[in-house]
């Protein structure tokens, strides 16, 4: 049996709302450690991997590891029907592995709403990616910035063109674009420390200068999720997709991997 409860408007609900513009269907894996989700956008440009440790929920129980495909858009629609103050329970029983049950309970416990959502096949939405601790050393540059700043950069650049070039070297982290009507270049002078301050842009890992070109449509989607958190961590590599990460509590995370644009 798997069962988690959360208050309406909790972080999981906010994140599911924010990923909808990219993702319809997701693979969800539950273990005693927590709730993880992987999804691929229809164009196979963005892969999303998130892990919510059990302690971020109001209550969490998972007797046996389970894996299921969930139509996230339908699930979010159902969750939207909850009222302020409701406690939301998501449950899968061992007897029935065809659907999940979502329950809303009013704060005074006088009203309960039960809904069943059919599970779907989402196996084609999986990718084989290495453990993050193995991948992290492959990134040439990793920096952190306030997520509101990241969103602002993406919005400012998308006025001019569909693409952004992110360049990182020891001295500067820049976001730039060039279009028919002009160009924009936003430069940040980074702090260099392992312990980033919340309000600043910090270069945490640097193994050599690197630049990548990315489609701003996808970047804006990543920025949308990141604004639920104070800081966003961005990793660049010429051999891997761009990585955008937000931390959830001590061990949790949301990671987006975004395939860059390449010159042919």
């Amino acid at each position: 049996m798997f069962e988690l409860t959360m208050a309406k408007g909790s972080i999981l609900q906010g994140v599911l709302e924010a990923i909808l513009d990219l993702v319809n269907v997701a693979n969800v894996d539950c273990s005693s450690k927590g709730f993880s989700l992987q999804a691929l956008d229809t164009e196979h440009v963005v892969f999303l991997s998130l892990f919510f440790p059990s302690e971020v929920f109001r209550s969490y129980r998972c007797d046996e590891d389970c894996s299921m495909g969930i139509a996230i858009a339908d699930m979010v629609d159902l969750l939207r029907a909850s009222n302020d103050g409701d406690i939301i329970t998501i449950k899968v029983t061992d007897q029935n592995f065809e659907d999940i049950t979502i329950t809303f309970e009013s704060p005074d416990k006088t009203k309960t709403t039960d809904m069943d959502l059919q599970l779907v096949d989402a196996r084609s939405h999986r990718l084989k990616i290495s453990e993050w601790h193995d991948m992290e050393s492959e990134y040439q540059a990793i920096f952190c910035m306030p997520s509101a700043q990241f969103m602002l950069n993406c919005k400012s650049l998308s006025v001019i063109d569909d693409d952004v070039v992110i360049r990182v070297n020891e001295e500067v982290i820049s976001f730039s674009t060039k279009g028919k009507s002009g160009c924009v270049n936003i430069s940040h002078v980074p702090n260099k420390t392992d312990n980033p301050e919340k309000a600043s842009v910090t270069l945490t890992h640097m193994r050599g200068p690197v630049s990548l070109t990315l489609n701003l449509r996808y970047m804006k989607s990543c920025a949308k999720v990141s604004t639920l958190f104070d800081q966003v961590k961005i990793g660049l590599s010429t051999k891997l997709p761009l990585m955008v990460e937000c931390k959830i509590a001590e061990k949790g995370y949301i990671r987006y991997f975004v395939a860059p644009k390449i010159t042919e």
Partner: peptide, 14 residues
């Protein structure tokens, strides 16, 4: 010409 790459160029599908 700049072209959008796909994740399958970086990761294997399962």
């Amino acid at each position: 010409v700049r072209k959008q790459s796909q994740l399958t160029a970086f990761f294997a599908s399962t």
